[in-house]
Design a protein around this nucleic acid. Structure first.
Lengths: 163, 163
DNA sequence: ACTGATTCGTTGAACTTTCTACTACACTCG
DNA sequence: CGAGTGTAGTAGAAAGTTCAACGAATCAGT
């Protein structure tokens, strides 16, 4: 809109047949896998994958408590979304909100004993699912390749300032 | 509940440290990647990844039309969800519903010229995103490993009768 | 043909997630 | 100090998804 009028037409660098095949396999496989893991977790323990993730993070935090925003950015949810999720989980007695001592704006979210207990009960079944559909289906090398590739992807995405 | 009372207590086969590391990297990486691709697509073309997927499938179908249920199972959405999605897309003029000639229960979903046009406009940007955050970030071998591993996962999930 | 079971797609309500606006506190710089 | 700017969390409305129930068409068995 400034000087050049039309932005330079650059030919799209389409994916090669192979690349497209792999990308689609990845996309479809991930969707189906996550869907399945989510449904199985839901059936067996009543948690969604998101709630489970919250429980896991809290259980591993010092004192089993964490600030809302840490929790949110850690699992990549919006602050708003986490507020709603935690509200539901608090109503269910899984977590408890406390005012944060060091920063009066902040709120700490603490795992209750009930919440921890329910996580302990849910974990074995979930691990079984992950094994059955991912870990035990692949060779050690394949799993490692998967993990390492996605670590690179994540690292790049986090280091990039923005786009 | 029948004979044995307690079901046999079997020790949970937890993941090894390495396995857990890879599984988490996979989970986090996938979440962040898909999130980013979705947001970029949304910003550039106004489509969600789901809508985009619908457009792609239709554009590749013979006659650019497909039965609702084929479409739904192809992309792994519930029939209900697809109904709602297609309703919105139809209101936006991207697709059109027609009665299916061979089966009066069925409904065919056809891509409109507008829909095809909008897909053509959206595609280059999306491919750029996929390259920037996945394809060009990995070696050919890594991408191939990713695709092949997930193809195995998907295949296993589809062949299993149910769980 | 007739009956019952099944599949197709839709509907509306309940629920979850996203988006936007808002309050309160913290930090910083004159 | 105190005005301006940024950050933490929340709240409610809008958008999207899931769930259960339904009407219509097909299929299988008699």
């Amino acid at each position: 809109m400034t000087s050049s009028g039309e932005q330079t037409e650059r030919a799209t660098r389409w994916l090669s047949t192979e690349q497209q095949r792999h990308w689609r396999a990845f996309r479809n496989g991930v969707a189906l896998l996550m869907d399945t893991l989510g449904r199985e977790l839901e059936d067996e323990s009543g948690f969604s994958l998101h709630e489970y993730e919250v429980l896991v993070r809290l259980s591993e935090a010092p004192d089993r408590r964490m600030r809302m925003s840490e929790l949110a950015s850690g699992i990549g949810h919006s602050r708003s979304r986490l507020t709603h999720t935690i509200a539901r989980m608090e109503a269910a007695g899984l977590v408890q909100r406390r005012t944060c001592s060091s920063d009066l704006r902040g709120v700490d979210c603490a795992l209750t004993d009930t919440g921890f207990q329910r996580l302990v009960e849910a974990a074995p079944g979930h691990v079984e699912s992950v094994r059955a559909h991912l870990v035990d289906v692949l060779s050690d090398e394949q799993l490692a390749a998967l993990g390492e590739a996605m670590a690179v992807v994540e690292h790049r995405l986090r280091e990039t300032p923005e786009r």
